[in-house]
Every structure is written in structure tokens, then in C-alpha cells.
């Protein structure tokens, strides 16, 4: 199967740069507000947006994204709203994938969700708490509805699991830069480069994106020196406090970072 995100990574590769991927939860601060913020990310220079599904029990998220998800849920956001946000991004010519904990999809119906996401113009799903071992129905539905399957690997992943996870992945492999939850950090963890290096052996030709902890252009440049995509989440949630202009400015800053690979630290 050809990856839906294949053309994106080809284009970035031709420009000798990493892709910039930004995350924000749908429904934060409101459904229409999140539509505008996600569009501002794309306008500012993100190549792809991750539309987050707010969830009641986000065990891989730190305080910033937890608070945003709680606010979105209090505002009454539904899974169908997430799909409608994806639809408006796609209609405006943007690229979107969904990032979701698995129970909302399980509850909606895995095949039905894949069908409706594909119909909305979404390109794939990032699944932080679904490992390929438990993903039989999702692998089938993704294939059937032509969606990318973006699984995560972590510094603790054994070589064997890097291989099996990469084999199940389509689009890009999501490498967690460190052991921990989401949240902006001052320094990019040194484990990130090592993990990407190990993953490359088992995922020849598969783009690798690095997330967790990136918040500014210098960090983006550092990550871009060894990864194919730089993923930024919590920093965008914080920037959303300043509205679309804050989000656009952060995207623009990060976009300069991914175009300016930093030398590897000595």
C-alpha cells in the first residue's frame, strides 16, 4: 500500500528538510476555535496537522494537553466534531491526521471510524495506546479505507519491537524522544537521536518523526538534523492561549528550524 503521507515526505526530501507537524486537540477552546487554530498552524508553516481527540483518561499526556482536553470535553466536543474539523482542513487543501487514544474509536466502531475519517479527507491515525499486537481490526480497516497507520516507538522499545512496529506502520513512524509524557522541555533528550538511529535499521525507507518536548526553532533544527519530521504538541497548546496569531507565529518559528539543520552537538 502506498502511504497517503508519501507525497509530503517526498516533497520535504526534495527540499532537503524535515517536515513540521503540529498537534492541537479538536474542540479547544471551541470546535470552531480549533478549526481556526489548526488552519493557522498550516498557514504559519506546518506541513501536517494532528487533530487530537480529547479523551477523559489521557495517560500519555502531561498537564498542558490534559488541561486542554478537559476544557474541550467540558465544552461538549464529540467525535463527530473531530471529523468535521478534519473535513474543513482537508477542504481548505491542508493535510490532517487524527491522534487518538483507542477507546473512542473502539466505541465508534473501528471500521466505521476509518470509513468516516477517510470520507472527511483525513490521511491516517496516530495511536498512542494501541500497539500493533492488539490492532488487527484497525490494520484491516486502515487498509480497506486507505489510511496511514502511525504507531509509536519509544527509547525502551527492543530491536525486535522496533522491527515489528515498523512493519505494521505506514506513513511515518512516531518516535517518542524520551521516556515520559507530553510536554515542552528545555533540552531535546539525547535518547532521541539514538532511537532514530536504531529504528532506521529496522525501517528502511520509512520516514521517522520525533515528538515529545520540542518547543522552539533551535530544538526543531536539532531534531531535523536526524529525523524526517519534527512533531510539536504542548507548545502549540500553550501558544493557543494567544489565539491564532500566537499559533501562526510559533509555526513560522519552528518552520525556520526544520529548514536549518543544526550541526550535531559535539
Amino acid at each position: 500500500m502506498t502511504a497517503r503521507l508519501g507525497p509530503l515526505f517526498e516533497a520535504c526530501g526534495a527540499q532537503h528538510r524535515a517536515a513540521l507537524i503540529g498537534y492541537l486537540p479538536a474542540g479547544y477552546p471551541t470546535v470552531d476555535g480549533s478549526r481556526a487554530l489548526l488552519q493557522a498552524m498550516l498557514d504559519g508553516g506546518c506541513d501536517l496537522v494532528e487533530v487530537g481527540v480529547p479523551y477523559s483518561d489521557p495517560v500519555l499526556d502531561g498537564p498542558t494537553i490534559q488541561a486542554a482536553a478537559e476544557a474541550a470535553l467540558r465544552g461538549g466536543v464529540r467525535l463527530r466534531d473531530v471529523l468535521s474539523v478534519v473535513e474543513s482542513i482537508a477542504a481548505a487543501g491542508g493535510r490532517a491526521v487524527v491522534m487518538t487514544y483507542w477507546n473512542p474509536v473502539h466505541r465508534y466502531g473501528v471500521d466505521a471510524f476509518a470509513r468516516d475519517l477517510a470520507a472527511a479527507g483525513g490521511l491516517g491515525v496516530i495511536t498512542p495506546d494501541l500497539i500493533p499486537d492488539e490492532a488487527q481490526d484497525w490494520l484491516i480497516a486502515a487498509q480497506k479505507h486507505d489510511l496511514d497507520r502511525i504507531f509509536l516507538v519509544a527509547p525502551s522499545s527492543t530491536d525486535q519491537r522496533l522491527a515489528s512496529t515498523a512493519a505494521a506502520t505506514c506513513g511515518f513512524l512516531y518516535a517518542s524522544s524520551l521516556m515520559g509524557v507530553t510536554g515542552a522541555r528545555d533540552v531535546v533528550s539525547s535518547t532521541a537521536a539514538e532511537l532514530v538511529g536504531r529504528a532506521r535499521e529496522y525501517a528502511p525507507g520509512l520516514p521517522i518523526g520525533v515528538g515529545l518536548g520540542v518547543r522552539n526553532s533551535a530544538q526543531a533544527a536539532e531534531v531535523a538534523s536526524f529525523a524526517d519530521a519534527v512533531i510539536v504538541g504542548s507548545a502549540f497548546v500553550t501558544a493557543a492561549g494567544a489565539g491564532t496569531s500566537g499559533v501562526r507565529a510559533l509555526a513560522a518559528d519552528l518552520a525556520t528550524g526544520v529548514r536549518r539543520p543544526a550541526p550535531q552537538p559535539a
Binding site: V59, L60, W102, N103, P128, D129, L130, I131, D133, E134, F151, L152, V153, A154, P155, S156, S157, T158, R161, T165, S176, M179
Partner: peptide
Amino acid sequence: GGRFVPEALIKA
């Protein structure tokens, strides 16, 4: 049952 957890915990 099963394991619906982040990959980071699988090794442990």
C-alpha cells in the same frame, strides 16, 4: 484483557 498501553511500557 490484553495490553492497550503506550509502547514505552511494553518492555517493562
